[in-house]
């Protein structure tokens, strides 16, 4: 059996098998956008964004069942805070509570770490917050974050637009999030109302998830955006093109989530140097 440290590394690897999720923060709002996948044509799309309370929610990449465990736990925490103190659960308290849960799993024998990464978005007394949660128990706050397959492309885009985020309006922020998400797509794929999910939370705005028909207006926003930005990006990040294989492989992995850890373990036996492979597999599949 692999050591716990290695298991944690595989867990972080499992996140990269999941489809991408991105998050962005302005001074007033937080936006999550995620790419949903269906295991097969006939199947439904995997839920990517889970509402926790009126003021917060999570986007996930990796094992969906593990995300349900964590989001249900967050919901309990949020409800008890509401019930006992009439106080919306603060974001930092929320993420640290799941971080503690996750960290315990990294040092207990017989168990395994959670195989899921979360982007936790919310608005509380201290403003808009976006946190990235990893199975290692690491939690960091970001102005823009992306997890999942080919998320590096989204990060690259966000790093370029970093200065525009704080003063962006809700609409602009969604536009940025969708543009970042679009950069993670495999070559022959496109964002549509079936595979895109968007969520917003902020000042005077409860956590709202937009799916299917509701997401259409936001996608139209993206269409009105000059395509030049995207092509400009494409030219620089040329390596994007050879990603599509990875996309298909990853798609099958998340479709059958139960087998994902086994797949992860198999991977490692192929390449003994898992940790070093980690940095490369960020967006390019060798």
């Amino acid at each position: 059996m692999p050591s716990i440290a290695l298991l944690t590394a595989y867990a972080i690897e499992a996140i990269k098998q999941g489809s991408a999720a991105v998050g962005l923060v302005s001074k007033t709002h937080v936006v999550l956008a995620a790419l949903k996948r269906n295991a097969e044509e006939l199947g439904s799309y995997q839920k990517k964004i889970i509402k926790v309370d009126d003021h917060m929610g999570v986007a996930l990449a990796g094992l969906a069942p593990d995300a349900r465990i964590l989001s249900n736990y967050l919901r309990q925490q949020a409800m008890s805070s509401k019930m006992v103190f009439n106080r919306p659960l603060s974001l930092s308290k929320a993420v640290h509570s799941i971080a503690d849960k996750a960290q315990e799993n990294t040092q207990s024998a017989g168990g395994r770490p959670y195989g899921v990464g979360l982007l936790v978005a919310g608005y509380d007394d201290s403003g808009a917050h976006l946190y990235e949660f990893l199975p290692s128990g690491s939690v960091l706050e970001y102005v823009g974050a992306a997890i999942g397959a080919r998320s590096q492309a989204a990060k690259t885009f966000m790093e370029r637009k970093l200065e525009d985020f704080p003063d962006a309006s809700k609409e602009q922020l969604i536009e940025y999030a969708l543009t970042a998400l679009r950069d993670t797509l495999a070559q022959d794929k496109e964002l549509n109302s079936a595979n895109t999910t968007v969520a917003v939370v902020g000042v005077d705005q409860d956590f709202t998830v937009y799916d299917d028909d509701d997401v259409e207006p936001w996608l139209n926003l993206l269409d009105s955006l000059a395509n030049t930005r995207n092509t400009a990006l494409k030219e620089e990040d040329d390596d994007e093109d050879d990603d599509d294989n990875d996309g298909d492989k990853a798609a099958s992995a998340e479709g059958q989530t139960a087998t994902a850890p086994a797949a992860g373990a198999g991977d490692s036996s192929d390449s003994g140097t898992q940790p070093s492979a980690e940095s490369e597999s960020m967006d390019v599949d060798p």
Binding site: F85, S90, S92, K93
Partner: peptide, 19 residues
């Protein structure tokens, strides 16, 4: 223990005591 400071507002306290 929380990393934010001073979260114990009077309205939260009265709710807690009521419970």
């Amino acid at each position: 223990y929380d990393m934010e400071s001073d979260n114990l507002k009077a309205d939260y306290l009265s709710e807690y005591l009521t419970r």
